[in-house]
Amino acid sequence: MIKLILTMLAGIIIGKIISHKKTTTLFSKIIFPIVLILLFFMGVAIGDNEVILNSFSSLGMQAFIITMGAVAGASVGGFLVYKLLLKYKKIR
């Protein structure tokens, strides 16, 4: 866990040192294919696992409840900050 975060921090520091406009677009372009490789492996793990394949509706329900909680919370938070920013005239 900590190793993963340190890896990312190392990336940030090195990225800062070699900061250049061209490299920024290069890096963001490489991210997508790497994510695709990992998503492919995730697909393999899903397809390989009969328990998952047979419990899609249950997993979907869990996902749905978590999503509803998250967007309800975010909406309340957004509402509060909107009222506050309006009150102190930080936005129109």
Binding site: G15, I17, T23, I34
Partner: peptide, 24 residues
């Protein structure tokens, strides 16, 4: 997805590159 799972190494590479792009 056995013991020699390659995706963990790829994950490290991914987070390193995510870091690079953020720092950059």
């Amino acid at each position: 997805m056995g013991n020699n799972d390659p995706s963990m190494i790829i994950l490290y590479i991914l987070l390193f590159v995510v870091g690079l792009s953020l720092g950059n």
